[in-house]
Write a protein that binds this DNA or RNA. Sequence first.
DNA 1: TGAAAAAACGGGAAGGTACACGGAAAAATA
DNA 2: TATTTTTCCGTGTACCTTCCCGTTTTTTCA
Lengths: 354, 354
Amino acid sequence: MAKKSTQLSGVKEIARRAKVSIGTVDRVIHDRAGVSPKTKEKVKKIIAEMNYKPNLLGRILASKKTFRFASLIPKVSPETSFWEAPLKGIEAAEAEIRQYNVEVKKYFYDQNDKGSFVTQYRKILKEEVDGVLLAPSFIDESVAFTNQCKKLKIPYVFIDSDIPDQPSLAYIGSDLFHSGYLGADLSRHLIGKKDKILIINISKELDNHHHLLRKEEGFRAYFKNNGYTNLLMTIEIRKTDHNAIKKALEKVLAENNDIGLIFVTNSKVSGVASYLKETKKTNIRLIGYDFLKENIDFLNENIIDFMICHKPGEQAYRGIMALYKHLVLKLPVEENTFMPIDIIMKTNYAFYNN
Amino acid sequence: MAKKSTQLSGVKEIARRAKVSIGTVDRVIHDRAGVSPKTKEKVKKIIAEMNYKPNLLGRILASKKTFRFASLIPKVSPETSFWEAPLKGIEAAEAEIRQYNVEVKKYFYDQNDKGSFVTQYRKILKEEVDGVLLAPSFIDESVAFTNQCKKLKIPYVFIDSDIPDQPSLAYIGSDLFHSGYLGADLSRHLIGKKDKILIINISKELDNHHHLLRKEEGFRAYFKNNGYTNLLMTIEIRKTDHNAIKKALEKVLAENNDIGLIFVTNSKVSGVASYLKETKKTNIRLIGYDFLKENIDFLNENIIDFMICHKPGEQAYRGIMALYKHLVLKLPVEENTFMPIDIIMKTNYAFYNN
DNA sequence: TGAAAAAACGGGAAGGTACACGGAAAAATA
DNA sequence: TATTTTTCCGTGTACCTTCCCGTTTTTTCA
């Protein structure tokens, strides 16, 4: 319960020492015109001596500016509830920084419709926003959007997946290669040395597809690097409905009766699980991605053995906070944040924070 | 870049509407004496109507109070570097909230010396602190300390382990039973149905011992609940030096030549790993606890297969933030926060945030 | 009824920063 | 030299709350 003694910091003290007014100190700090070189030098010296750091509270309080952030992520669809967690992350961050005059306006696009992405980003560009959080599902469109942002000097943060060679304020996501690599490591514990492994990439949109490939690469690399000789085969499924998955699985399982494990490279693992449950193929182990309700259910029924997850909610939370740190607090921001590669199983999912 | 229009919120507006002064409004808000019941009612009504929430920035800025927190955790010793992470967590939290007039004074005790714990907490009680973060390694002493805190109305937060029936502002830690339960689930993937399993509890201090037992309980419960019939045996090692561990292991392994897996219930797993490496017992799988340098090394050499971890750094970070939320922001605080039970292996440790 | 005591309330400063505005001094132009 | 333009700098106000110090009003009691 210590009371502060008399102030020895702050603009006031600088002004006193430099024998100028607070206004002048302010001009020096913000490098505005209207200060003679001599005065400027003197004030700068004192600032350096005092190791002066502006008081953030005062700054935010004094500036009447309301920062406006925009987030652009896929909407929660019946197809997948994956984006629920990021949305919650955004809202949590917003609740925390609203008191510092920050507003977050949320925009959503349809993951199966590039047009909706364009429509939404155009809306954002019309509003004058100070920062953007972006899940760049569509590559070319995201490049176009962020190029505009660069022109307008609006900083943007990528979450979930990165656009290489498009320098952003920050990227917060996961290392997909190593995530696949880990998946392979987990596989090894579930099957014998001679079991075949089936890798399944399920996605409608070609743009999302390269992420899946990256995981597959990691998966295959593990087996190669460690000298395992299990036969790995891959199938691609271009539709996400139950029937399409069923058909594809029926075909591949009919042709290969010695598949011991299936690795699904994204959250659509529940589709595969559903099929395995239906057909009572309990001898096939299953690894997939993402902490979704439907996946958890299959985890509980021992149909899915492991799930890999990258905390999408925290990614979004951190993304908003990165904008806040950069724009409001004017603090440096980590350029690349790789989320942990979490392993979820029946016995620990209850404690997981997505 | 929206500028705020004229204020419609804040004490000023309340005062204007109630036709009283700001001072009176303040008295009503803080329930201080010196306001007539009539005026008080009127102001309260307007506050309710406006759904007034005090501006935190203004509040912190105006109150000259510096909050003083104290943390009391074990010191980093040559014996274990476990407490490095919590220390970093505390420092990270402090860096973040220092700007809001919060100071954290760090106190350390020797985990093998109850006396040092008492000495340190007495020091804390002499200083007038506003909140305490505590790792309650010694039960009776912790109860004594926190009873004093209660008397002095100083809120305290437990991390790492809880003291049941000692109601605190918050407990931030892990569910040890389920952590052991998960360990057992992992074990199952590493060994055959007939392998023996050795559980090892290594600790000098009896007070710490019950935590280990809780994990053991969880471990055993898993096997029981799931109908596995592997033979489980436990040994206790009451010293932490290499030689003591070596001797104990030599004895038990000589008597049991069919042990397939060892589960060490705490971070001392590196001691066991070291012995296994020395004696080239590569046919024994090993699971243990905590993200420590020495453990990671053995993970890398495939001597430790899995490690379980509860983010001790984040526990401490959140503990400090809980005090901050409660005391400075006057926000409600979650009473029990259970950290995720993380699985660490060779292929994902590089991405782990301890 | 009048004075003293108590209660109720207003005003202002502090806390640190931002920024518009206006005044004074210096420099440039007529 | 007189006038205008720049350059430089100080002042005042706003942001919002807290808290102390007075002042005004009401109550109490002689």
